[in-house]
């Protein structure tokens, strides 16, 4: 797993998973449709990404689909870092 995905996965695990739970997630685990990240948490996640990677995520791109897995989020971050 590359560094970008690992950093996002670490954040999701730390912020949104129950410390005492036995749930494990991968880069392809469904975060929003799987009920791990709700709309409220998505805002916090978006801000984490914007600050850590010095990007601005337009509202148009901040869709539940784009945030539904670490893999998809990493793809979004990479696209925005490349100015696309």
């Amino acid at each position: 797993m590359d560094e970008l995905k690992k950093a996002i996965l670490d954040y999701v695990v730390h912020e949104y998973l129950d410390e005492d739970g036995d749930e494990t997630i991968t880069a392809d685990t469904q975060l929003i449709s799987g009920g791990i990240v709700d709309s409220f948490s998505m805002v916090s996640l978006k801000r984490f990404l914007e600050k850590k990677y010095a990007i601005s995520i337009p509202d148009r791109d901040a869709s539940p689909e784009a945030f539904d897995s670490v893999t998809r989020i990493a793809a979004l971050v990479q696209r925005l870092q490349q100015g696309k």
């Binding site: 709309s39 409220f40 998505m42 805002v43 337009p58 509202d59 148009r60 791109d61 901040a62 869709s63 539940p64 689909e65 784009a66």
Partner: peptide, 24 residues
């Protein structure tokens, strides 16, 4: 107000538009 924004988004969900609309 957060709940109201979410409720508006749900009400608009018949549209295929994606993304967030918080400040709109």
């Amino acid at each position: 107000r957060y709940a109201a924004k979410e409720a508006v988004v749900k009400a608009l969900s018949a549209s295929p538009a994606t993304g967030s609309f918080w400040l709109d």
